[in-house]
Protein backbone atom coordinates (compact mmCIF):
# COMPACT_ATOMS: atom_id res chain seq x y z
CA UNK A 1 0.00 0.00 0.00
CA UNK A 2 2.86 2.39 0.79
CA UNK A 3 4.10 1.97 -2.77
CA UNK A 4 0.72 3.26 -3.92
CA UNK A 5 0.81 6.40 -1.77
CA UNK A 6 2.98 8.45 -4.11
CA UNK A 7 0.72 7.98 -7.15
CA UNK A 8 -2.33 8.44 -4.88
CA UNK A 9 -1.13 11.83 -3.63
CA UNK A 10 0.08 13.05 -7.00
CA UNK A 11 -2.94 11.86 -9.02
CA UNK A 12 -5.26 13.53 -6.49
CA UNK A 13 -3.22 16.74 -6.66
CA UNK A 14 -3.29 16.62 -10.45
CA UNK A 15 -7.04 15.98 -10.57
CA UNK A 16 -7.60 18.80 -8.06
CA UNK A 17 -5.80 21.13 -10.43
CA UNK A 18 -7.81 19.97 -13.48
CA UNK A 19 -11.29 19.36 -12.06
CA UNK A 20 -11.17 21.60 -8.99
CA UNK A 21 -9.42 24.66 -10.44
CA UNK A 22 -9.17 24.71 -14.23
CA UNK A 23 -12.62 23.26 -14.94
CA UNK A 24 -14.62 25.72 -12.78
CA UNK A 25 -12.40 28.59 -13.98
CA UNK A 26 -13.03 27.67 -17.61
CA UNK A 27 -16.78 27.46 -17.06
CA UNK A 28 -16.72 30.77 -15.16
CA UNK A 29 -14.76 32.50 -17.91
CA UNK A 30 -17.13 31.40 -20.65
CA UNK A 31 -20.20 32.07 -18.51
CA UNK A 32 -19.09 35.57 -17.51
CA UNK A 33 -18.28 36.48 -21.11
CA UNK A 34 -21.27 34.92 -22.84
CA UNK A 35 -24.02 34.90 -20.21
CA UNK A 36 -23.13 37.49 -17.56
CA UNK A 37 -26.71 38.15 -16.41
CA UNK A 38 -27.50 34.53 -15.58
CA UNK A 39 -24.00 33.77 -14.29
CA UNK A 40 -24.33 36.52 -11.67
CA UNK A 41 -27.64 35.40 -10.26
CA UNK A 42 -30.21 36.92 -12.67
CA UNK A 43 -30.22 40.10 -10.60
CA UNK A 44 -32.83 42.80 -11.14
CA UNK A 45 -31.72 46.43 -10.76
CA UNK A 46 -33.71 49.65 -10.41
CA UNK A 47 -33.02 52.82 -12.38
CA UNK A 48 -30.34 53.85 -9.86
CA UNK A 49 -28.60 50.49 -10.25
CA UNK A 50 -29.45 49.12 -6.81
CA UNK A 51 -30.26 45.40 -6.63
CA UNK A 52 -33.97 44.70 -6.11
CA UNK A 53 -33.65 40.92 -5.98
CA UNK A 54 -33.11 37.97 -8.24
CA UNK A 55 -35.63 37.02 -10.89
CA UNK A 56 -35.31 33.45 -9.64
CA UNK A 57 -35.86 33.90 -5.90
CA UNK A 58 -39.20 34.59 -4.26
CA UNK A 59 -39.34 37.52 -1.87
CA UNK A 60 -41.97 38.28 0.76
CA UNK A 61 -44.12 41.39 0.21
CA UNK A 62 -46.69 42.25 2.83
CA UNK A 63 -49.89 44.02 1.83
CA UNK A 64 -53.13 43.27 0.02
CA UNK A 65 -52.03 45.19 -3.08
CA UNK A 66 -49.30 42.69 -4.04
CA UNK A 67 -49.31 39.18 -5.44
CA UNK A 68 -48.28 36.80 -2.67
CA UNK A 69 -45.76 34.05 -3.44
CA UNK A 70 -46.17 30.51 -2.13
CA UNK A 71 -45.75 30.16 1.63
CA UNK A 72 -42.19 29.40 2.72
CA UNK A 73 -41.33 27.02 5.55
CA UNK A 74 -38.08 28.92 6.13
CA UNK A 75 -39.78 32.33 5.93
CA UNK A 76 -38.06 33.09 2.58
CA UNK A 77 -34.62 32.70 4.13
CA UNK A 78 -31.99 32.29 1.44
CA UNK A 79 -29.08 31.30 3.70
CA UNK A 80 -29.82 28.49 4.34
CA UNK A 81 -32.84 27.59 2.22
CA UNK A 82 -35.27 25.07 3.70
CA UNK A 83 -38.51 23.11 3.46
CA UNK A 84 -41.15 22.05 5.99
CA UNK A 85 -40.48 18.32 5.56
CA UNK A 86 -43.86 17.66 7.13
CA UNK A 87 -45.15 14.16 6.40
CA UNK A 88 -48.57 13.85 4.75
CA UNK A 89 -49.70 12.06 7.91
CA UNK A 90 -48.39 14.75 10.27
CA UNK A 91 -51.35 16.47 12.03
CA UNK A 92 -49.30 19.69 12.03
CA UNK A 93 -49.53 19.80 8.21
CA UNK A 94 -53.32 19.54 8.14
CA UNK A 95 -53.61 22.11 10.94
CA UNK A 96 -51.36 24.62 9.15
CA UNK A 97 -53.17 24.16 5.83
CA UNK A 98 -56.56 24.52 7.52
CA UNK A 99 -55.54 27.83 9.08
CA UNK A 100 -54.06 29.18 5.84
CA UNK A 101 -57.03 28.02 3.78
CA UNK A 102 -59.40 29.88 6.06
CA UNK A 103 -57.42 33.09 5.58
CA UNK A 104 -57.30 32.70 1.80
CA UNK A 105 -60.98 31.86 1.52
CA UNK A 106 -61.85 35.27 2.89
CA UNK A 107 -60.35 36.91 -0.21
CA UNK A 108 -60.95 34.58 -3.16
CA UNK A 109 -63.77 32.51 -4.54
CA UNK A 110 -63.98 28.74 -4.62
CA UNK A 111 -61.49 26.14 -3.45
CA UNK A 112 -58.09 27.60 -2.55
CA UNK A 113 -55.45 26.55 -5.11
CA UNK A 114 -52.97 23.99 -3.81
CA UNK A 115 -49.89 26.20 -4.32
CA UNK A 116 -51.20 28.88 -1.96
CA UNK A 117 -51.47 26.57 1.04
CA UNK A 118 -48.47 24.27 0.55
CA UNK A 119 -44.88 25.32 1.22
CA UNK A 120 -42.42 24.79 -1.61
CA UNK A 121 -39.34 22.54 -1.53
CA UNK A 122 -36.86 25.42 -1.56
CA UNK A 123 -38.87 27.96 0.40
CA UNK A 124 -37.90 30.33 -2.44
CA UNK A 125 -40.23 29.13 -5.21
CA UNK A 126 -40.61 32.24 -7.39
CA UNK A 127 -43.61 30.92 -9.33
CA UNK A 128 -47.33 30.28 -9.04
CA UNK A 129 -49.67 28.49 -11.39
CA UNK A 130 -51.76 30.99 -13.40
CA UNK A 131 -54.82 29.78 -11.45
CA UNK A 132 -53.18 30.58 -8.11
CA UNK A 133 -52.29 34.07 -9.36
CA UNK A 134 -55.83 34.66 -10.66
CA UNK A 135 -57.21 33.63 -7.27
CA UNK A 136 -55.61 36.79 -5.85
CA UNK A 137 -56.97 39.17 -8.50
CA UNK A 138 -60.15 40.20 -6.67
CA UNK A 139 -58.20 41.22 -3.56
CA UNK A 140 -55.52 43.14 -5.45
CA UNK A 141 -58.06 44.84 -7.69
CA UNK A 142 -59.97 46.06 -4.64
CA UNK A 143 -56.82 47.25 -2.86
CA UNK A 144 -55.55 49.10 -5.93
CA UNK A 145 -58.84 50.33 -7.26
CA UNK A 146 -58.10 48.72 -10.62
CA UNK A 147 -60.42 46.76 -12.88
CA UNK A 148 -59.88 43.03 -12.42
CA UNK A 149 -59.58 42.57 -16.19
CA UNK A 150 -56.42 44.70 -16.20
CA UNK A 151 -54.80 42.32 -13.69
CA UNK A 152 -56.03 39.24 -15.55
CA UNK A 153 -54.37 40.69 -18.64
CA UNK A 154 -51.14 41.26 -16.71
CA UNK A 155 -51.11 37.62 -15.58
CA UNK A 156 -51.71 36.41 -19.14
CA UNK A 157 -48.74 38.46 -20.34
CA UNK A 158 -46.48 36.78 -17.76
CA UNK A 159 -47.47 33.14 -18.25
CA UNK A 160 -44.52 30.92 -19.16
CA UNK A 161 -45.59 27.57 -20.59
CA UNK A 162 -42.59 25.36 -21.37
CA UNK A 163 -43.23 22.25 -23.46
CA UNK A 164 -41.91 19.95 -20.75
CA UNK A 165 -43.36 21.50 -17.60
CA UNK A 166 -46.41 23.12 -16.06
CA UNK A 167 -47.41 26.70 -16.94
CA UNK A 168 -46.28 29.21 -14.32
CA UNK A 169 -46.11 32.95 -13.67
CA UNK A 170 -43.24 34.66 -11.87
CA UNK A 171 -44.64 36.46 -8.84
CA UNK A 172 -41.79 38.96 -8.52
CA UNK A 173 -42.18 39.87 -12.19
CA UNK A 174 -45.88 40.54 -11.62
CA UNK A 175 -45.17 42.69 -8.56
CA UNK A 176 -42.45 44.67 -10.31
CA UNK A 177 -44.87 45.32 -13.16
CA UNK A 178 -47.37 46.60 -10.60
CA UNK A 179 -44.73 48.80 -8.96
CA UNK A 180 -43.20 50.22 -12.13
CA UNK A 181 -46.17 50.77 -14.36
CA UNK A 182 -47.88 54.12 -13.61
CA UNK A 183 -51.15 52.91 -15.08
CA UNK A 184 -51.27 50.16 -12.45
CA UNK A 185 -50.50 52.30 -9.39
CA UNK A 186 -53.47 52.59 -6.98
CA UNK A 187 -55.73 55.52 -7.81
CA UNK A 188 -56.09 57.08 -4.39
Amino acid sequence: MFKQLRPAVSVLAFMTLITGVLYPLAVTAVAQLALPAQANGSLLHNAQGAVRGSALLAQPVAGAEWFQARPSAADYASVPSGASNLAPSNPALAARIAADAQRWQAEGQGAVPMELVTTSASGLDPHLSPAAARYQVARIAAARGLPASRLEQLIEQHVQAPLVGPAVVNVLALNLALADNPSLVPSE
Binding site: Q38, A39, S54, A55, L56, Q59, A62, S78
Partner: peptide, 29 residues
Protein backbone atom coordinates in the same frame (compact mmCIF):
# COMPACT_ATOMS: atom_id res chain seq x y z
CA UNK B 1 -25.75 28.78 -16.81
CA UNK B 2 -27.85 29.65 -19.85
CA UNK B 3 -30.93 28.50 -17.94
CA UNK B 4 -29.99 30.68 -14.93
CA UNK B 5 -27.61 28.78 -12.64
CA UNK B 6 -24.99 31.18 -11.18
CA UNK B 7 -21.28 30.75 -11.98
CA UNK B 8 -19.25 33.46 -10.28
CA UNK B 9 -16.65 34.03 -7.57
CA UNK B 10 -18.39 37.15 -6.25
CA UNK B 11 -19.51 37.31 -2.64
CA UNK B 12 -23.25 37.08 -1.86
CA UNK B 13 -25.28 40.14 -2.91
CA UNK B 14 -27.77 41.94 -0.68
CA UNK B 15 -30.97 43.04 -2.40
CA UNK B 16 -33.44 45.67 -1.20
CA UNK B 17 -36.76 44.03 -1.89
CA UNK B 18 -40.12 45.50 -2.85
CA UNK B 19 -41.34 44.74 0.65
CA UNK B 20 -38.63 47.02 2.05
CA UNK B 21 -36.62 44.21 3.67
CA UNK B 22 -33.17 43.00 2.70
CA UNK B 23 -32.61 39.64 1.02
CA UNK B 24 -29.22 37.95 0.73
CA UNK B 25 -28.75 36.41 -2.72
CA UNK B 26 -26.37 33.45 -2.36
CA UNK B 27 -24.01 32.97 -5.31
CA UNK B 28 -20.95 30.96 -6.22
CA UNK B 29 -19.42 28.71 -8.89
Amino acid sequence: VWQGVPQTFQAYVTAHTLGGTDQVVPLGP
